[in-house]
Amino acid sequence: MVNSGRFSGMQGLFRAVLLCLLVAMPASVSAEGPKRGAVTNLPLPRFVSLKSDKANVRRGPSLSHRIDWVFVRRGYPLEVIAEYGHWRRVRDVEGATGWLHYSLISGVRTALVTAENVDLFSRPDPASRLNAQAEKNVILRLLECNVSWCKVTADGQKGWVLKDGLWGVRPDEVLE
């Protein structure tokens, strides 16, 4: 019998369903569970923040690699996408990637405002009192998040903001 590449019968149906599930699965999740870093055993990808006011982003994971650019904002959110020894490959909001020494990043969670303005409400409800507004490119510290909202703080202001105006937290991520 020649395999035409098409699925047939119950076995074919099972394969089709399995293929659909694998295609729909997020890249950070495999059939065995979330992908983990070989060095830290922490989830990959994961969000972190910049610990320093100045951090050289290198082309590769060592001091001998060329510096491609420099981050200059403490608290800037980054996404760790790979690990190699004391180095972490990170991605920024624009999708640019490079390598940072692990001592330059922190587990403190922050998010960057990507919308023109976001409203900070007293509760996770748009009908609640408006506490403040944050403009595009403001860095907010994440305190907690539910499926749709995050409680944040910046410059002494606290409030709840909708996730869809932020970069640095996944749409379905819950932080406690």
Rank of each mutant, 00 (worst) to 15 (best):
P26E: 06
P45A: 02
N3L: 03
L63R: 14
D125E: 12
R58S: 02
R59K: 14
H101I: 00
V23H: 02
P34Y: 03
V161D: 01
E144R: 15
V2K: 14
V2C: 03
G37C: 01
L140R: 11
K54N: 03
I67D: 05
R109A: 10
Q133D: 05
R74K: 13
R15I: 10
G156H: 09
K158G: 04
R66T: 12
M25F: 00
G168A: 15
F14D: 11
K54T: 10
A154H: 15
G12V: 06
V93L: 02
R15N: 06
L143R: 15
L120N: 02
V161Y: 06
L21V: 13
L175Y: 11
D68E: 12
R129C: 05
A127D: 02
L78M: 08
D53H: 12
L100G: 08
L143N: 12
D119S: 12
G12N: 04
F14S: 08
V138T: 15
R46V: 04
A55T: 02
V161H: 07
G168W: 11
V138H: 10
L112C: 13
V29G: 09
W87I: 10
Y102Q: 13
G107M: 11
N131C: 05
P34I: 03
V113Y: 07
L44Q: 01
P34R: 15
A127V: 03
V17P: 05
W99F: 13
F7P: 04
Y76A: 01
G85Y: 00
D92G: 03
L21G: 04
R66C: 03
M1V: 03
R89A: 02
W149R: 02
A38D: 11
S28F: 13
S148G: 08
D125H: 11
R141V: 11
L112I: 09
S62Y: 01
D119T: 15
V118T: 08
P77K: 05
E173L: 01
I139G: 05
D119Q: 10
L112S: 09
W69N: 10
T97R: 12
K151Y: 13
A24N: 10
H101T: 00
S30K: 13
L22T: 05
L162I: 06
I67K: 14
G85C: 07
V90L: 08
D155N: 12
V174N: 08
I139M: 09
V23Q: 06
V152Q: 06
V48Q: 12
V147T: 03
S4R: 12
D68L: 15
W149G: 02
P43N: 13
L104K: 04
V169Q: 04
L166I: 12
L100D: 02
I139L: 14
L140G: 00
Y84D: 11
L50T: 11
A111D: 05
R66S: 14
R170G: 09
D119P: 01
F14N: 10
Q133R: 15
P171K: 15
P124D: 09
K163M: 06
W167Y: 11
V108T: 15
F47Y: 15
G5D: 05
S30N: 09
G37L: 03
S103T: 11
P61Q: 03
L120R: 05
A132W: 15
L78S: 04
